[in-house]
Amino acid sequence: MTEAALTSDIAVGKGRSLWADAWRRLLSRKLVVASLIVIAVFVMVALGVYAGLIARDWSEPVGPRYQRPSLEHGFGTDFLGRSVWRKTLYGAKISLTVAFLASLISICIGLPLGAIAGYFKGWIDELIVWLFTTVNSIPYIILILAFAFVLQGKTLFGYPLRGISVVYLVIGLTSWVGLCRLIRGEVLKHRDRDYVMAARAYGCSRSRIILGHVIPNVAHLVIINFSLRFVSFIHAEVILSFLGLGVKGEPSWGVMIDDARQELYRGCWWQLAAATLAIGLLCLALNIVGDALRDALDPKLRQGLE
């Protein structure tokens, strides 16, 4: 076949980027679409809580205390007679806010550090590798609690750190290592590819190469990493809230589990069940989407142990 014949094979028009391809592959699976819908619903609930449309009067008693789940009381009531259903909805706001802001902080640290280490190599790379090996050599839960211990009650640029801000700050500051390592490895591969050589040959500046050429080629890893990492952030929020470090005066899922601990001995299982169900459902959807994203965006990437 000649070149000219090949040329006419592709219809003239808009091209399909790798992103568009991946998106199409993602939408072709029913379970993934269902999970995306579940996530969207949770996000909507969280936004609704922010807007004051959902669960605004969560703190009002809706009936007697310790009511079982029933048609009348929905998911039941807690030790103050408040609706477990409303508390659960409200918890979506806390969980998603924490996970989202922690991801943001984590990406803001991990992505530039990884890209710089991988692109420049040399002593700067060794310094960054040393930094993340060190942070990584402190067991995660110990590190997170030590950070929380220190940051609690301090002020940062005039903002007092308490409640939710400690939670996302601590999670964000301690969880960038995985991404940093991943990005560094991938950038190391890309920096010697011919397309980067070509960009250098026509005089592209280093910052333009990193931002315009290399980062777009590793950006999918950020997305895969964080769709999977979101789950561990949500779980971390639960543990921190449970240990009394999280939000105060608002119901998060971790606070609900803590409340439920006392109620369990009265046979009141529904608050624990509701929180578990909410976390389980959201995390299940996130896990499924994360896996599917990985398959769609980077089939080579092997799943690690989180």
Binding site: I234, I257, W269, T276, G280, L281, L282, C283, L284, N287
Partner: peptide, 12 residues
């Protein structure tokens, strides 16, 4: 199983 937090396992 991965999606459910450890605290729920312990409490239940």
């Amino acid at each position: 199983g991965m999606s459910i937090p450890m605290l729920s396992y312990i409490l239940f």
